[in-house]
Structures are given as structure tokens and as C-alpha cells.
């Protein structure tokens, strides 16, 4: 929708008015600044100033939210598969088990602990996995 010269002039004046208000409040606290910005309004009788435009008077530009990085491993099993032949600690409700992870099967893993004992840990009861 094209604006008439009068509308363009009023728009320009309004922009100047809002910028002056914000500039004059820059020395105030952020709370006051936000209050001024939130409270700016122009009341022109008989004239719909907004006319479908979105006037964003916020002087700060917000950085777009960065997407959360998704790890390559999506399941606990994937994590464990990546740790085969590594020294790991797995925590179960009973307590932690430490050793070298030598196999990951469908519902359990196999560790060799410090004294050479073989330990079968049920995957279902693993609460935490850490690479030592």
C-alpha cells in the first residue's frame, strides 16, 4: 500500500520522536529505557497510523538463537559402541563399575576390571557412562 506524502511525513516525524526519546534516556537504567520504549505511542485522531505496518523501535538487535548441537550418538548403546576398548566407568543403581569395555551386545556390555575379572553389565540398568 503506497503512502501519501502527508503519511510519509508523519511517519518520519514519529520515527524522529521515538529516536529522540530513546536517545535522551540512554543515560538512564535499562529498566527505565525499556519502559520508555514500551510506552511510546502516537495518538492521531482520525488517522490510523499503524496501517498494517509493524514498527519495531527496539534499538538492540538480538542474535538468532543457535541451534543446540546434536551429538552423533543418539542412544546409550551408540555411546557405548564408540567406547569399545576404552577405559570406562558405568554407574548402576548398585554402584559404579570400572574397567575396559570389550564388547557391546544387544542387552549387556562386557568389561574387564582392574584385577582381570570379567563383568557383564545389563544395559537396562546403566544410569551413567563416562570415559576415563
Amino acid at each position: 500500500m503506497a503512502l501519501t506524502n502527508r503519511q510519509k511525513y508523519l511517519l518520519q516525524l514519529t520515527n524522529q520522536l521515538s529516536q529522540n526519546l530513546i536517545a535522551s534516556n540512554n543515560t538512564n537504567t535499562n529498566a527505565n529505557d525499556a519502559e520508555v520504549r514500551n510506552n511510546v505511542s502516537v495518538d492521531l485522531p482520525g488517522f490510523d497510523f499503524n496501517a498494517g505496518f509493524n514498527f519495531d523501535f527496539d534499538t538492540e538487535t538480538e542474535a538468532p538463537a543457535e541451534p543446540t548441537p546434536t551429538p552423533d550418538s543418539t542412544t546409550l548403546r551408540d555411546v557405548l559402541m564408540d567406547l569399545v576398548n576404552e577405559q570406562v566407568e558405568v554407574t548402576t543403581p548398585f554402584g559404579p563399575v570400572t574397567g575396559t569395555l570389550i564388547a557391546v551386545k544387544s542387552d549387556y556390555i562386557v568389561l574387564i576390571d582392574a584385577d582381570g575379572s570379567q563383568v557383564l553389565v545389563r544395559m537396562e540398568n546403566i544410569e551413567l557412562v563416562s570415559n576415563l
Binding site: 548398585f94 563399575v97 575379572s117 563383568v119 537396562e124 540398568n125
Partner: peptide
């Protein structure tokens, strides 16, 4: 019960 087992250790 197998479901209740956390882990099984086979001591050397």
C-alpha cells in the same frame, strides 16, 4: 530375577 540384575562379575 534377570531383570533385577545390575551386573555380574566373574572373579578371577
Amino acid at each position: 530375577s534377570v531383570d533385577a540384575i545390575n551386573f555380574v562379575r566373574f572373579p578371577v
